[in-house]
Amino acid sequence: MKKKTLYVLFLVITLVLSACGSNASDENKKDNEEPFTIGVIPVQTVGEMETAMDKLQSILTKELNREVSVEVYPDYNGVVEAMNYNKIDMAYFGPLTYVVAHDKSGAKAIITQLIDGEPFYHSYIITHKDSPLNSIEDLVANSKEFDFAFGDINSTSGSLIPSIELKDRGVFESEDEHQFKSVRFTGSHDATALAVQNQLVDAGAIDSAIYNQLVESKKIDGSLFKTIWESEKLFQYPWAVHKDTDDETIQKLKSAFLAIDDEEILAAFGASGFTEATDADYESIRQAAIKQGIINE
């Protein structure tokens, strides 16, 4: 009788443990079925990036062994807010939007892109070849005669860095307070380039890598432009994960990006490849954002 009781007890315990294990397994399976979501800022107009993002989505889905969803947002700030409210697991930020997201929600930079083998780019101020402007000094000295375009208001090279330069030279404070004939924000780098090419504005600020990519892809005619100002080196756009992302997922993401050689994906970002990045790489941008009162020290 005693042996029989022990046997029955053993069976009960085994069944209970199996049920617990099954529930845990089911729960883990459920978690893994939830898509890993990535938000991307619109470095070019959204339609131009769709095919490349579909390819990136497929690569990352295979590497993570989990469904990945990549979405290009209509504006820079939307990606910051999506990370802040836990709507996305990873984001492709501009350097400025990254330091804002890091400040707000603890986003962590893990990857950036290479341009001709280096993780740097510049902010340009460009103008039409027929423009009388040949330098930023010309632009500042005669600012009231010229229409100026920034990109997205949250762009590093399309807004933050050139606005600091123009502010230091005494001709710009804000969209409503400036010394130009007019100031506008186009929303993207390619829109700024086209506005200058079509002489809708006299000069505009743009990402150097995106400008070069637009010329190489013949989306704009490089022979119609002059570059009249170039910033110091800026560290390239980061891919950043949510603060709660586990180390295994981070390593898989790094491996996937470092292996990417698809020309269409790279071209969407004006890149020649990818390399690792850390939060410390964006300290100069953080200091610029503090100077402009965008984040607190």
Rank of each mutant, 00 (worst) to 15 (best):
E177A: 04
A268F: 01
I111K: 10
L234Y: 05
S163A: 03
L200Y: 03
E264W: 08
V201L: 04
A209W: 04
I164T: 04
K254I: 14
G151C: 02
V72M: 05
A107Y: 10
Q236G: 13
Y121R: 12
Y124F: 15
E145L: 13
A107M: 10
M83A: 14
N84W: 09
S182I: 06
K144L: 04
K2Q: 11
F120G: 09
L96Q: 13
E276P: 00
A19E: 09
G94M: 08
F10C: 11
Y121F: 13
V215Q: 02
A271Q: 01
N28L: 15
I111L: 00
G170D: 00
E118R: 12
I38N: 11
E165N: 08
S208F: 06
F225E: 02
T127L: 07
F269N: 01
Y121E: 12
I110G: 09
V70A: 08
G273A: 00
V46F: 07
H122M: 06
Y7Q: 12
V79Q: 10
N28C: 11
E50V: 15
N23K: 13
L64V: 06
I290W: 08
R184V: 11
G270W: 02
K144F: 08
V171P: 03
E33N: 14
I220A: 09
K254G: 03
S155P: 02
G222V: 10
D190F: 09
L114R: 09
Q236R: 04
A289E: 08
G187Y: 03
A107I: 03
N23V: 15
Y76Q: 11
L9F: 14
V215A: 00
E67K: 15
M49V: 07
A277W: 08
E63F: 02
E34D: 13
I295H: 03
E81L: 13
D138V: 08
T97C: 04
Y211H: 11
S143A: 15
H189N: 13
A268S: 14
L224H: 11
P119I: 12
M90K: 01
V241I: 01
Y85I: 07
S284D: 12
S284P: 01
V196H: 03
I228R: 01
H102L: 07
S58K: 14
D262P: 04
D103L: 04
Q292Y: 07
I161K: 03
L133P: 14
M90H: 10
Q287K: 10
L266D: 05
D244W: 06
F225Y: 15
F180L: 06
E173H: 02
N154V: 06
L6I: 15
E232D: 13
A52R: 08
V68M: 03
V68Q: 10
V201G: 07
M49R: 08
T37Y: 07
K181S: 06
V16I: 14
P74A: 14
G21P: 07
K226H: 09
H128M: 13
I125C: 07
H128T: 14
L56D: 06
Q213D: 11
R286A: 08
S188R: 00
E232T: 11
A240G: 11
A191I: 00
H102P: 06
K3L: 11
D262C: 02
I228P: 00
T127V: 05
M90L: 14
